[in-house]
Design a protein around this nucleic acid. Structure first.
Length: 263
DNA sequence: ATGCCGGGTGATACCCGA
């Protein structure tokens, strides 16, 4: 079972890239972020043509998340993160696929910090922590996957000193991520590669990708019920080198699930 | 070593992302 997360940076503008990558890697489940489109313009037909069913939560111009599943319709369990009825951003969608509870999230960027956007980011993180704790209590195989907009440690930044005051790296945000993981979640990439520099994002300018001046901000967190099934994790760097591509690369994990999972 | 690049909106300059 291959599960991936990919911040596409505009699903319609990057559809060629997305479809090409889906054909190459054939993930079973995909969490997408930054759709940047209203629900009506989600490319359902084009995805179906290459074998994927989908649920999505769009928004005009910004944000937007979706879950794709190969050959099966994800069973939608939630649209929007609980805890604030006034939150209008489309940043969370959740579905069950093959007995796995998949939470797909796009955590706020939070810049500039300090400021109202940074406050929103911290509040959103608190809501995520509260909800993640509820998921753990269910003791089901669950995954919280997406663009967290957090580099958890110095190892996750090409030049930590330059990012100290950034909203993606401030101590409050790293502490929030550590606290979330501390609930009992397993950061798939760090678990398998405790000391390697692994990035999922590179800026468009200054040849960041070619210089490998990147950040690790996309993460796959596994609940204790599914963590023992983790077999591999890898950043799919190839699509990042294509024309008109996203500034993120897909991150993919492979699970070796027992046949009885979810039944 | 900085939104320097890049998309969306809607019409041209600003908002947003990281």
């Amino acid at each position: 079972m291959k599960i991936a997360t990919y911040n596409v940076n505009g699903i319609n503008g990057r559809l060629t890239v997305l479809l090409r990558w889906l054909k190459e890697d054939r993930p079973d489940i995909v969490c997408l972020q930054e759709l940047k489109t209203v629900d009506e313009r989600f490319p359902r037909k084009e995805l179906r043509r290459v074998g994927y069913e989908a649920v999505w939560h769009g928004q005009k111009s910004w944000n937007g998340v979706a879950i794709l599943a190969k050959g099966t319709l994800p069973l939608l369990t939630r649209r929007g993160l609980p805890g604030d009825p006034d939150d209008t951003h489309s940043r969370y969608i959740e579905a069950v696929v093959d007995g796995l509870l998949i939470g797909c999230l796009y955590l706020p960027n939070g810049n500039p910090a300090p400021g109202p956007k940074f406050d929103y980011k911290l509040r959103w993180f608190q809501r995520l922590q509260a909800y993640a704790a509820e998921l753990l209590e269910l003791e089901v195989p669950a995954l919280l996957i997406g663009d967290y907009n957090v580099m958890p440690t110095d190892l996750d930044v090409y030049a930590p000193e330059r990012w100290r005051d950034d909203a993606l790296f401030r101590p409050e945000v790293r502490a929030a991520y550590a606290e979330l993981v501390g609930q009992g979640w397993v950061d798939a990439v760090r678990h398998l590669y405790p000391e390697e520099r692994i990035y999922t994002f590179w800026k468009y300018w200054r040849n960041s990708f070619e210089r490998d001046a990147g950040l690790r901000i996309d993460h796959v967190l596994l609940s204790p019920a599914v963590a023992p099934c983790l077999r591999s994790a890898s950043v799919r760097r190839r699509p990042r080198g294509w024309e008109h591509t996203s500034d993120h690369a897909p991150l993919m994990v492979e699970l070796d699930l027992p046949k009885a999972a979810g039944q």
